[in-house]
Amino acid sequence: MPEMLSLSNDPILFVTVMLAKILAVFIVVILIVAYATYAERKIIGRMQTRLGPTMTGPLGLLQPIADGLKLFFKEDIIPAQASKFAFVLAPMMILVPAFITIAVVPFGGNVVVGGYTVPLQIADLNVGILYILAMAGLGVYGIVLAGWASNNKYSLLGGVRSAAQMISYELAAGLSIISVFMLSETLSLRGIVEAQAGGITDWYIFSQPLAFCLFVITSLAEVNRTPFDLPEAETELVSGFCTEYSSMKYALFFMAEYANMVVISAVTATLFLGGPAGPFPGAINLLLKIFFFMFVFIWIRATFPRVKYNQLMYMGWKIFLPLALLNIVITGAVVVF
């Protein structure tokens, strides 16, 4: 294996490759986000005996683009009593963490470029998992800020709900991952993928089924998807934190929600399903796993009612947190003995 490409051995090549990787990942994520909205509308439509979009382009395939354009050209309204700076900042605060989390997710093995080894991953942080949790935590600031800055009581309730929800679920999600890196003995996502590389039986979903279930459920709560979509609960809070948003700012919230879904799916696939491992070339495996999780999320949205705020809290603190702790204890016992 040739030497690893780094900033010291070939700065120009390194920057070029880096930019190429970032651009590729960004475009793929944006495309998935755009077509996730399309897929969601189609799938839920079919499940509800409807058709979903059909008019824009063949099979309605241009619908996400039409939606984007429409939102782009809409008037941008900032309520007179809103806190302007925070109001403008909030959508960015929620979108950016959603996108940058994907940086630590490996989407393949190593390739050789110009005589150097290049890992198919934007950044192999040795604290990759902590970085993911940190970014997920950062995203909630956007929601809280949006709720507060809108100067709307419904939005405020949405923001408060989301803050409480995020704290309770962040904990359980974090704790459920601990058992994973207890097994892999590394915090780097690349390391975790390599630890699962020995074939399908090495995937942590089989050795850590409880952690997997906990992580998927808490992730649903973290990305505000049904049945945990309390911060936006349109029938209660009239869209909650994004009530007052319009135009491109609303589109940013919308994109962030789907980007979060993509990221959470990618992270789950990496932690529990061996990431890019599988029968096809690297990135395709990862994409298939992402699509699978996205489909499940959409499916769940079509089927389940929404839980109540106090029930959500109850579940977070009294069920998921103890279960996650228990899982750590069991894993610890197994690892030690």
Partner: peptide, 9 residues
């Protein structure tokens, strides 16, 4: 519940 929605798909 999930199977009912899936059936309609």
């Amino acid at each position: 519940g999930l199977s009912i929605t899936a059936k309609h798909l």
